[in-house]
Write a protein that binds this DNA or RNA. Structure first.
Length: 510
RNA sequence: GGCGCUAUCGUCUAGGGGUUAGGACGUCAGAUUCUCAAUCUGAAAACCCGGGUUCGAUUCCCGGUAGCGCUACCA
């Protein structure tokens, strides 16, 4: 008997397995900044893993740093996630609302002897650290308060001395784990220091927050940036002290700038929101980010979200950091724009134009204008790198007020006869009937022949007159789409402009 | 400094004990043409260095180097 397992069946089995295994992952941004592309990729990989496995994605907001966390940033992060299409199944859960829980855990760790109060002040520690550094000695918390007797401890507590709570690292031995991406990792306990769990102001540190939450939320797989590899052994020790099951860890290589330094503002835009504003499509950004550290099977690079979900595999994630290549993103974005249906593209362009003060929709807009608008958008579709191009280089297609681009003027308006040629062409265009591709082309070529100039000269000069740009679609397509009245007017205006500034200076037309 | 991790074209990467080391972005050239983009064709472009294991290492091991990360009462 031949077992028949359709791909659909396999899909189903995987989802069932995911549910049975109770696969639970989380994305835990800190609202101390906007969602940056690195965070977005972490979110994406968590999301893909959850969807692939039929598991659950939890969103948690790590807002324990009261000074740096801002509620409006949480809102912005949520918006960015939604824009990218990364939905979550549980949460958002706010750490700031779980303070009691962290206190309880810190207490339990203390009563089991895995943690202790530390009365050292930040200033004391700071100076000890500075001294060690000056003497070029490696610094690690020296354990002053670890050695305190019960009596001393109680006395200091009774005095009301502010105390942090530190985790007690075992004196010897080592901790290791099998990272799903990096493989076996281990560190000696002697290289770890007794880190702070609870600040003296009662707020938990990152370590306590994550572990407490991941335990309570029954997180099975921790997928996060590689900058947390070094933190993992400490956290595993906490799981053990708490007698909680240890999740599977998978660390993701970092995203770097072109100079191979960690991506930061000085490399330009780093936030998801900034790319959105720059006219990048969410699908393109998701696709690009997915490929930064992971390669789907096959050689295809433009992959649908369904294919990503189907093929995603933590084990296939790269171990080395990746440079964020804006050029490739731009290419991918143009690729996605090109494949948008008119129904998808039109509203995006309208939004962009409106944002740039070039509204297309006025109350008196007729069906014909509506159709013309659509034709223009589609004509330009294959040349758009971002949606923003519509309000930038393509401006002349949507508004009569545009400037003649200096480079274009220099390149195509240098011939002295241009003004009169454009003037003559205006007349022919006014007379062209029918005003279509063939009709206008014939009119132009006839004129060129009569004047004894190459058609190309007239075509290129006209393109500048009609669009202000040296670069635009095929001239006759532009002519048809702009319409007879505009074409005639713009040709005349260009001729006038040339006559008024014989030196071909590049002052704006309007 | 200590500890950890990483190392294939400029960039993202595939591959893997014996390959013409594959793809993509970018670059360059050609085709096309009415400019540019797109498209098509072609080209240049990489296994960090040194040892070891092996008949044979880019691949496995060790060392070096470089880069990154952690080394906070940040996350």
């Amino acid at each position: 008997m031949i077992p028949i397992v359709s791909s659909r069946n396999r899909e189903l089995h995987r989802v069932i397995a995911g549910i049975m295994n109770n696969i639970r992952v989380r994305f835990a941004p800190s609202p101390t900044g906007y969602l940056h592309v690195g965070g977005a990729r972490t979110a994406l990989y968590n999301w893909l893993f959850a969807r692939h496995m039929g598991g659950v994605l939890i969103l948690r907001i790590e807002d324990t740093d009261v000074d740096r966390s801002k509620p409006e940033l949480t809102t912005a992060i949520l918006e960015s996630l939604e824009w990218l299409g990364l939905n979550w199944d549980e949460g958002p859960i706010y750490q700031s609302q779980r303070l009691d829980r962290y206190h309880a855990m810190a207490l339990s760790l203390q009563s089991s002897g895995h943690a202790y109060p530390c009365f050292c002040t930040p200033e004391e520690l700071q100076s000890k650290r500075a001294k060690a550094e000056a003497e070029r000695r490696p610094w690690k918390y020296d354990g002053t308060c670890r050695a305190l007797s019960h009596a001393d401890r109680d006395r200091l507590l009774a005095e009301g001395r502010p105390a942090a709570v530190r985790f007690r690292i075992p004196d010897s031995g080592k901790t290791s784990f099998e990272d799903q991406v990096f493989g076996h990792i281990e560190v000696e306990h002697r290289d770890l220091e007794d880190f702070v769990l609870l600040r003296s102001d009662g707020h938990p540190t990152y370590h306590l927050g994550v572990v407490a939450d991941d335990i309570d939320l029954r997180v099975t797989h921790v997928v996060r940036g590689a900058d947390h590899i070094s933190n993992t052994p400490k956290q595993i020790l906490m799981y053990q002290a708490l007698e909680a099951p240890i999740p599977v860890f998978a660390h993701l290589p970092l995203i770097l700038g072109p100079d191979k330094q960690r991506l930061s503002k000085r490399h330009g835009a780093t936030s998801v929101g900034a790319y959105r504003e720059q006219g990048v499509l969410p699908q393109a950004l998701v696709n690009f980010l997915a490929l930064l550290g992971w390669t789907p099977p096959g050689q295809k690079e433009i992959v649908t979200i369904e294919e990503m979900i189907r093929d995603f595999d933590l084990g296939a994630v790269s171990k080395s950091n990746a440079v964020f290549d804006l050029e490739k993103l731009a290419w991918m974005n143009s690729e996605y724009i090109r494949h948008l249906s008119p129904e998808q593209l039109l509203p995006l362009v309208e939004r962009e134009l409106a944002g740039a003060g070039l509204p297309v929709r006025d109350p008196g807009m007729g069906v014909q204008e509506e159709e013309r608008f659509k034709q223009i958008v589609l004509l330009l579709q294959s040349r758009a790198r971002t949606i923003q191009d519509y309000a930038g280089p393509f401006r002349a297609f949507f508004n009569d007020e545009f400037a003649y681009e200096p480079g274009a003027v220099k390149k195509f308006w240098k011939d002295g006869s241009i003004a009169s040629l454009l003037e003559a062409l205006a007349e022919r265009m006014a007379a062209a009937n029918p005003f279509d591709l063939a009709g206008t082309e014939a009119a132009l070529r006839t004129l060129a022949e009569e004047k004894g100039v190459k058609a190309g000269l007239l075509i290129n000069a006209s393109r500048v007159a009609l669009t202000g740009q040296a670069v635009a679609p095929s001239l006759f397509e532009v002519i048809v789409v702009l319409g007879q009245d505009r074409v005639v007017a713009r040709l005349r205006r260009a001729a006038d402009h040339l006559r008024s500034v014989p030196d071909n200076s590049t002052s704006p037309a309007a």
